[in-house]
Structures are given as C-alpha cells and as structure tokens.
Design a protein around this nucleic acid. Structure first.
Lengths: 340, 340
DNA sequence: TTGTACGCGTTATCAC
DNA sequence: GTGATAACGCGTACAA
C-alpha cells in the first residue's frame, strides 16, 4: 500500500524518471507520443506529486504562516479567510497560529513558522518595541507582512487609519454636545491603540475641549477588558456620557457592562464601536461604528506576500494605509446629564 | 547566508553527522562530554532542525488539515481555534481551508490536503452521500475526523445531539401555545439538518400537533438563507408564530428579516437560535437558543486524531455524541395571533 | 558509543 | 529530446 511516486509513473510509461518529471512540470519540450504515455500512466496510477519532496527540492513550501491574536474575533476571521482564499488561488496554503497577544506564545510561534520553513508570514504582534520580539522578527529568513502594526524595521504592512477614524467618531460626539467622552482601547505599544489615542486627542484639540485623562483607558484589546473598563467608568460618581470602544473585540464587553449597570443607550450613554459586526448592526439600538473592510486587508496582505515571493524580494517595504468609514446609527444622542 | 544544517553542527562540534542527530533526537545514549559539545554548537549556531527534511525522512508532516464551511462563523472559528491549540500542544500544526460548503471546493481541498501529506484531516462535508466526495474521502491515506457529519464509511466523528436539542426547543414553543412553528435549517443531506428535522417532528408528534410542511424550510445553513426563508415566511398571509433558526450562522439573517418586516420579538413572533453568540446574548430581547460548547468539540477532535496517530491506527471508529443545552431567554412568548 | 552510507521523492544539470 | 545522476537535510541501519 505504498504511495505511488514519480518513479512508478516513469516505469509504467517506460521512460526515465527525468522525462516523467519533465512532462509533469511541463517546462521543456518532450515528444508528444511520450508525453501522452506518461500522462496516461499518471492517470492510471492516480499519481500525485509529493508536496513535501517538492518543498525539499525547491526550497519552498508554498505555505504562509499567520499569527493572529484570536481567530474567534470575527474581524480577524474575515481577514484570515480572505487571505487564505487569495493565497490559495496562487497555490499557497495557510498555516494558522493564535498568539492570544502573548509575547511568549508569539515567540514560540515565530520559531515554529521558521522551523517549518514558511515561505512568508503575515502577523500582528503583541508589542511593537519589545526587543526580543523585534530581534526574532528581524532574523526571520522569509518575508513578513505586518497586520496593523509598525514595528521598527523594514516590513511590508497593512495599516488602518484609526487616527482619522477615531477623530471622526469623537468629533461626532463632541458635536452632539458630549464633553466627557471615554476611550477604551488596547496597549499603546501597538499602532491601532496609539493611532486611536491620537485621533481622540486631535478631535478634542480641534474643538478646544479638554480631555479627562482618567477617561482614557488603554490596556488590552480583549472583550473582557472592554467589560471591566466600561464597568469601572460607569460605576464612578461622574461617569462619561459617551464611550468609544477602540478595539474590534470590545463592543460586546462594553455593552454588557452598560446592560449590567442598567444604563440605556443612547439616553444615558452614547456608544461607538470599532469594526462592524452582527452585534453592532443588530443590537437595539444599532451601534454607530468606525468600520473597514477586513477581507480587503486579507487580500492585500496576500498580494504583498505574493509580490515579494515572485521576484520582488528586494522591493522597498510597502506600507498600505486603508481608510476607515464612520457609520452613524442609533447609539449616539446628545448627553442628557450635565457636567461641570 | 545559507541556512545552518545538522552538518554544520556536526562540523562545529567535531563529531559526525550521525552523532549530532543522535543528541538532537535524544533517543540513544551518547557520551555526556560529546553531547555537551554538540549542544553548545547548536546554541552557538542557532541551529533549528528543518521540518521539511524531517517530514521527508519521518514520513510525517505533523500537520493536520481542517476543512470547514466558513471560518468567519464564530462557532466554527471557536472550533478551529480550540483544535489548533490542542494540536499545537502535541506538536501538530493546523492548515485551514474553507470550502464554503461547495462540493467542488471540497474535492479540491481534499486533493490538496492529501498532496501535502497531512497526517490527519478534520472536516465537515457539504453532502454526506455524494458518491464522488465519499470515494475521495474513503481513498484518503490519513485518518479523518468528521465534524458533525455521519457519511457512510467508518470515520471517527464528533456529533451533536441536534435532535434532542430541537425537540426541547419546539416543546418549549408548543407549551407556550404555538401551533404554527417554522424551522429553517440546512440541506437534509447532512446530519445537523436531518437531526433537527427529526427533533422537530418528535416534539410535534409528542404533543399531537400537526406540522405544516410549508413551515419546514431546508436548504442551506447560510445567514443569507436564514434571511430569505424568514422573509418569505413572514410575508405570507398566514405567517408562523415562531421561527427556529436551525443553523449556527442563521440567526442574524432571521432577525434581519424580522426587523425588515417590522415584526416585534417576541410579541409578533418568537425566535429560537442555534449556537450561542454575542448576537443572541446581546440582542433585545436576548435570544433563546440551543447551545453547545464548540471549543470542547475542537479539543475532542484533536484528541481523536492524536490517538489515532499515536498507535491507534486500527482502533474501531469512535463517534462521540455531545449534548446540547437549551437556554431560555426573552425571545419567546405565547403567540398573540390566532390561527386555524 | 561513534561514524559511514543510504534513502525519502523531487527537480535540475549534465552528457548523450 | 532523453536518460543518468547529484543534490535538498535528515534519520537510521549497519559496520567499526
């Protein structure tokens, strides 16, 4: 019950191994009659080239590794699926690995992907300026595309314009009359959190409104963090009149906290989410969000890698900035309470 | 800038290639002093064994392939992530492939996974009794774990007790007084749809209530199908008083249809979903669902494969049946309208 | 205990 | 145009 190899094909077709290989890879010319015989043998034996042996010989696995925080976050799943499909069309497969945004996991996964000789890597990182992570990333022998991260070094990157997105969101709230707006987002060691904080400041500065630093909650992008931070904010004597969830996975936590406190949206509190989800669209009221197309990012990421793998190894790094879109729904209203 | 191989390690340590290999794989005994020298060389050169060459030699890629319908469905993402983590702990990586529930894609992916010499496969299938799919699956040289499918043939399988889950859900609705209940689910060519239809019938039979066959909508598991079927049902002169979304990805479509028609839940229509999601929990009112733990399934699937790959090749096929849980929330109420 | 040599399945480089 | 043959990097049987 041995696997059928190219040798078997050659023998069955009565040709040499080299000739069989030539008709399979169809690069050089071979006598039509012989070609035919080999193809018949392939069909008869149901020969399939062995991808492992091909990888060995060609020094390319035609496999891309992906490191994401958590694939159960719908936005990240969309990204991964779109990337996988685009890569598949070019003959690449995708190996997935979830880091949980933990640097130790990330380090191990990086090691894994390099040992498994991935042709390329597409990844986020838990911390852009962590020295060890940076060193390991820089030592990677294959091209890397960063997903919404700008670590030091020359990497291709897919970047979202969170700064402008957040500016628009906060501007919207300020226009409605809010003067005490909270932002809950991830650690500022990564681009999306940093950019959102900048946009938050931009909007306040433009309106001449001071920021209460205790309303700026940076820490983790998780849903749970959204819940905890929102709970704390709402439990204060002087709760904010609006909360912006600055992470793709944080809205449900924020909404749960609001629900638990018995606050009504938007009467008692206005809410804006980041990334569009079923939840944002179908909650009542539907939630105003800063959205973007994660599937498009996935396809672009695949494109970036494929370009580099097909001759573009020496191209200068390309950073693509994707716009965000502000979708106003029913979760924002003028503040009902008065503040100093 | 060549990659460092075991040869370099051997040379640096002043030993033969075989000895170096021995200390790396730590199987046979080697002189402690020599072992030390080799280890030093490994550390100094930052040697990493080449997984491709290892796969070649050991005839095992330590990689599992997964075929799922759509990884952006949170339940499936949970499954995949849990499986990936469990497999990772055992030194296996996971290659993902999305079929979109299309048989042609599925066939191609099966070919792909076999060509890439996956050690095992964990998959759903678009149609259990499709002859060509069955033939290709049966011809697969590696162990296969079916996810919520029972195709002909001897496969390990993770099965959910959708029949009992649906029976409970419908019983609940019947008790509330509903006499015109619709079920929207996937094609009955697969276990989950078939089992749900059975449970639907079970509950009606037990209560002595006749089923209106036009309220039994089987076709596709997609969100879009949920929307279309629900829209059609609600557009009738005699709409059902309750709708059960019999698919993990269908609730949002059903809710959208209800919203579009201007129906209120649960006043005008009661709703029950399958699989728990942010949406079900946070919609207003929160949606009653039949739920289960998809992450547990993922871990069990990994376990099944690992058992088979570590000596259990000849074990009889194991089918694990997982219970579902009925969670009553606010989306069901007695019917307000009267029906013949 | 250690070293040598072969083979895993391909592709590519030679001569013919 | 075709057929030997040498790699690719590793594990291991066998000999020393």
């Amino acid at each position: 019950m041995r696997r059928v190899t190219i040798k078997d094909v050659a023998k069955a077709a009565g040709v040499s191994l080299g000739t069989a290989s030539r008709v399979i890879n169809a690069n050089t010319s071979v006598d039509p009659a012989i070609r035919r015989k080999v193809q018949d043998a392939i069909a008869a034996l149901r020969y399939q080239p062995d991808a492992v042996a091909q990888s060995m010989r060609r020094r390319s696995t035609r496999t891309i590794g992906a490191i994401v925080r958590d694939i159960t976050v719908p936005a990240l799943a969309s990204f991964v699926q779109a990337a996988q499909q685009a890569l598949h069309d070019e003959g690449y497969a995708l190996l997935i690995a979830c880091s949980g945004d933990r640097r130790d996991h990330e380090l191990e996964l990086l090691r894994l992907l390099s040992q498994r000789r991935m042709d390329g890597v597409i990844m986020t990182t838990a911390a852009e300026d962590d020295a060890e992570l940076a060193a390991v990333r820089a030592a990677l022998p294959m091209p890397v595309v960063m997903l919404d991260r700008t670590p030091p070094g020359a990497f291709d990157a897919l970047l979202l314009d969170h700064r402008e997105g957040m500016r628009q969101a906060v501007e919207h709230l300020l226009r409605l009359g809010h003067r005490r707006i909270a932002l809950i987002t991830g650690a500022t060691g990564v681009h999306p959190a940093r950019a959102r904080v900048q946009g938050f400041r931009d909007a306040h500065a433009a309106a001449g409104v001071a920021i209460d630093p205790t309303c700026l909650r940076t820490g983790s992008f998780t849903d749970q963090s959204g819940f905890l931070e929102a709970s704390a904010l709402l439990g204060r004597p002087d709760p904010p009149t609006a909360i912006v969830a600055g992470g793709i996975d944080m809205l449900s936590g924020v909404l749960r906290a609001i629900q638990a406190r018995g606050f009504a949206v938007p009467r008692d509190i206005s809410v804006i989410g980041s990334a569009d989800t079923d939840l944002a669209m179908l909650a009542s009221p539907p939630v105003t969000v800063v959205r973007w197309d994660y599937a498009e990012l996935g396809r672009a990421g695949a494109r970036l890698l494929i370009d580099r793998l097909s001759g573009g190894a020496a191209l200068p790094p390309r950073q693509i900035l994707f716009p965000t879109e502000f979708i106003s729904r029913g979760s924002c209203a003028p503040p009902s309470r008065q503040h100093c």
